[in-house]
Design a protein around this nucleic acid. Structure first.
Lengths: 223, 223
DNA sequence: TAAAATATTTAAGCGAACTTTAAGCTAGGG
DNA sequence: CCCTAGCTTAAAGTTCGCTTAAATATTTTA
């Protein structure tokens, strides 16, 4: 198994490299974002450890660009602080997991094993309903060939609806899945975001909208 | 899969419980360490979510005692902050993974799945009587291929009848099961809703209706 | 770093859909 | 043929979801 470590602090990079090599992984190191991106595109890795704070190109950008290139190698992001916002941002850009520094090496190993154990998709996944498509790796949405710009919450909501096509999702269900589990919002917030989504996804197009209200139960996308 | 959540903040415990239940895990909650320990030893769980900060016995101690008892159920520890020391301590006492609060619900789900090593899938259940079908996840009802639109009470009533096929359900029984426990309604309300249902589910179709009155006792669906 | 632009969340009002009640009517069983 | 359980109808009451707008956060730009 071949692992790429993108980390600018040499001391850490070295320690991680040695530790992983002791577990008989093959490890390459890149010391800045640009370099990391190039290595990741040039070679085929089974896993990428990606620091967020990097010279020349930050981790989020590297991740985003790799996913946009159709590279689906599992990415484990290393964040300096464990701030929920950073985590969300990391996962939004396509990372598979994250780990807050500093971490015990055993934890890193556990995460690495978990990600490598996981069978990962090679095919590009695209969610679709009628003529609406959503590409999770590119975070892009199109309808009838026209690209649609969504905010991150709007996007998250649409993705959740699409991943549960034909299922009716209650506002509560949506609240716990699309917002942080302890987010303190009202059901009305969901209604408002549904309205925003409809304005962008349904209104500008002919025919009955794709996003359906199921009164008393919630919302549904699909037939 | 049965999961035990040990967490003293009720709001969080509730949110986690509901979220996991929506993924069709069976979830029990304990609100302090002592309680959590007792539940964990009394029942067989497939996974334990264990908060560190707990009244009466902290998470480390619970974990340690469980391991000492020879209970090897995977434990996912929830720490308030991502302090390396806490994490090490947690893993030292026998936890399998940890997660720093607050976290997006999807991250919790990912960890839970990883620990249970279970690909996520939900089998679709469909209730049926003659040519009438009801799909709980889509909240949809069809008869003879034709879709039928029901209000939420109508739907709840039909679902209850279908889940108790061939059983006669008294108006009182229906009142307590379909309406809120403390709802203050008259038996006549049930009659009215039975009529609404019949108008949508039976009248437009040939033959004797599926919803039968059992005079003096109640209603029944099925043969 | 302040200002401006965006994004998110809350709040209130309205109209439509749904629920419940009440009263008179129908019909089954003795 | 009477009595009562069940049915029907329509009006009153309630809830739900949509909209709009204003209040907060957050991110970007200058």
């Amino acid at each position: 198994m071949r692992i790429l470590v993108v980390e600018d602090e040499h001391r850490i990079a070295q320690a991680v490299k040695e530790g992983l090599e002791q577990e008989s992984y093959a490890v390459d190191v890149a010391y800045d974002g640009e370099d990391g991106y190039n290595s990741a595109t040039a070679d085929e890795y089974d896993l990428i450890l990606l620091d967020v704070m990097l010279p020349s190109m930050d981790g989020y950008t590297v991740c985003q660009k790799l996913r946009a290139d159709g590279i689906h190698t599992p990415i484990l992001m290393l964040t300096a602080k464990d701030q929920s916002r950073d985590v969300v941002k990391g996962l939004d850009t396509g990372a598979d997991d994250y780990l807050a520094k500093p971490f015990p090496f055993e934890v890193l190993l556990a995460r690495v094993r978990a990600l490598l154990r996981r069978p990962h998709e090679t095919a590009r996944e695209v969610l679709q309903a009628a003529d609406l498509t959503l590409d999770p790796s590119a975070k892009s949405v199109e309808r009838g060939g026209k690209s649609i710009a969504l905010s991150s919450k709007e996007y998250a909501l649409l993705e959740y609806l699409l991943r549960n096509q034909n299922k009716v999702l209650s506002k509560n269900n949506i609240m716990t899945h699309v917002w942080d589990f302890d987010a303190d919002i009202l059901p009305n917030t969901v209604e408002v975001f549904i309205a925003y989504l409809r304005a962008k996804v349904d209104k500008p197009f002919k025919g009955p909208g794709l996003i359906q209200t199921v009164r008393g139960f919630g919302y549904k996308i699909g037939s």
